[in-house]
Design a protein around this nucleic acid. Structure first.
Lengths: 338, 338
DNA sequence: GGTACATAGGTAAGCGCTTTCCTAGCAGCC
DNA sequence: GGCTGCTAGGAAAGCGCTTACCTATGTACC
């Protein structure tokens, strides 16, 4: 690998001059020297060693992102927003998949710190686990005291900058709409209870139903994996356990698709006999039949805002932005059958 | 940020000893010193500066990946395989979205080189553009001469290690199956003609149809954007231009979904009047109604193999692996109506 | 007790770069 | 012509780390 010294030697100048030419320092350099340096750079295919640069002038050009899994549509969209803003700032992005494993999250934060990234964005749900939360907060604080920036999306763990989707509002939206259409025997297809995303959404739904005079009994909630198979399983259990069920609320669209699959397999008409609603408005929601009624979260925007906070000037006090949820009504929701 | 020197000072040892303790060097260190160092590390929340380490001992811990767009399901799956293997090797992954912009690809290769990444994996389609291809090959070669490793997935540009999906076979599979079911008036919903992925798939399809005695005229191919909207547009044009059309081949599943949407809007029964087949077997293929007949490519595996090549021992001669395509028959394909 | 050897730990060089500080050369002025 | 005041370019320090090399101490043996 060609080094600055090689370039300087070939151009017959000092490394200092070569460096000045290469990164367009304000110090003026004679045209003939400049040209010689540039030619040497081209000849040697010289690319400055980013690590050496970083060591010499601590100016960080990479940001780290920890998500559940980039190939999950929710995080894929989120990541798109994150990437866009990072690119606009000329930053590369290291993406780490935690697969919702808290230990792995912790490990990644550590590795990103070692990489001297300019900022860390932690995306995804928080956990109801005080020990983990404390350890994470501690690690993030340590990173921040060394000049790193942290922003979180969709989780509360961090006392600093955060961007949140209005999960609770979304749950409420769903509950209100279901009641309006006459649904009162409602089952909930929920993801893992340790995720704050789940409990937030559930809280909103519960509140809306209770306010409407139809509180949600615990046995009408089934917790399962936060994916298609989990959705099918929970939907099956609810169907068996709750006679006269008229609607199924899935706490994300993947689970809703799983529920839809199960209902079709059991020959239950949607929305004729049972309505199904989801959450997140992933692309698939519009593609299934019947198309899914769901709560849209501005995922790309969420990611973009988070990265903007992380790369923008440090605020004197934490900024917490909540981005609104909106109801998207499609075919899978109908009136309650009498 | 605490440095090694800080740790050493606090532990009352030399930086050399501290370093030896911290990265478990083979050189033995007395237990009491070791313990003091470890305590100092904990007290100061010391994390070694990865850049300084890299400079001192050129051992690269990050790999770079250039894809079209992580949030595209095709690349999301691919990335999952890439990530898995990279993680198994203890490597972090920098992911760059090129959005199919050749200039941006070139730029990213440069940036990744500056980052001293251990390997670069270039994923996605190649371009029919000799100038670009030459520039890219040149840049990659420069990177390789400095000890970097390169692997490409789904593209031919690089004279080194490559993993390819059997695009042409896939096209052929589709063509054969369509003929078998009596389809002869077939329209092709194609993506941009500059992409080698498109021409490869098309070549296979064309060959199968020609061998079956029903060569594909150029006017039955419509090139459009490689996404849902492009699919809808191309499908619409074909429907208008080709009377008696009985089947639509979309060159990826997104386009197929777009075509399906258009057909539904025009009240064309699928597969009653027109059959639709896709390519890639993205998750959405199974979710739409009718479920999509498509060609499955082992995307995760493709990514995993590519990363394995990139991180494995350098071969004396380039390895090119082709991973097979398989036909997945679902509801959207029926017999040709007479 | 003196020499030889092993060994724990320290010293310092060097990875590739940036940047401060310095020097040499030059123009401008009295 | 001698001085001051600039400016372009170079020398060298230092970023945080690893490691080859060296020193000092302790052990073993004659």
């Amino acid at each position: 690998m060609a080094t600055l010294a090689d370039v300087a030697r070939r151009a017959g100048v000092s490394p200092a001059t070569a460096s000045r030419v290469i990164n367009g320092s304000s110090k003026p350099v004679a045209d003939n020297l400049r040209e010689r340096v540039l030619r040497a750079v081209a000849d040697l295919r010289y690319v400055p060693n980013a690590h050496a640069q970083l060591l010499a002038r601590p100016q960080r050009s990479v940001v780290g992102v920890v998500v559940h899994d980039v190939s999950d549509p929710y995080f894929a969209e989120l990541t798109r927003g994150l990437q866009r803003v990072a690119t606009d700032h000329g930053r590369l992005v290291i993406i780490c998949n935690s697969y919702r494993d808290p230990e792995r999250e912790l490990e990644y934060v550590e590795m990103l710190r070692a990489q001297q990234v300019a900022a860390i964005v932690l995306a995804g749900s928080g956990y109801h686990d005080a020990t983990f939360t404390a350890r994470l907060a501690e690690k993030l604080a340590a990173y921040e005291t060394t000049g790193g920036r942290v922003a979180v999306v969709g989780r509360h763990e961090h006392p600093g900058d955060a961007v949140m989707p209005a999960n609770t509002d979304g749950g409420r939206l769903l509950g209100t709409e279901l009641l309006r259409r006459g649904h009162t025997r409602i089952g909930v297809v929920a993801g893992p209870q340790v995720l704050t995303t789940i409990t937030d959404r559930l809280d909103g739904l519960r509140a809306a139903l209770a306010e409407g005079g139809h509180p949600l009994p615990a046995e009408r909630i089934r917790y399962a994996d936060f994916d298609r198979d989990g959705g099918a399983r929970a939907a099956g259990e609810l169907l068996d356990a709750v006679p006269g069920l008229t609607a199924l609320v899935a706490l994300n669209d993947s689970m809703a698709v799983g529920a839809l699959t199960l209902l079709r397999a059991r020959n239950v008409a949607v929305p004729g006999q049972v309505s199904v609603v989801g959450f997140d408005d992933m692309p698939v929601a519009a593609d299934v039949t019947p198309a899914l009624t769901t709560v849209r979260l501005p995922l790309v925007e969420l990611g973009a805002r988070a990265m903007t906070l992380a790369l923008g000037p440090a605020a004197d006090r934490p900024r917490v932005e909540v981005l609104p949820a909106t109801l998207v009504v499609r075919d899978s929701l109908g009136p309650a059958p009498d």
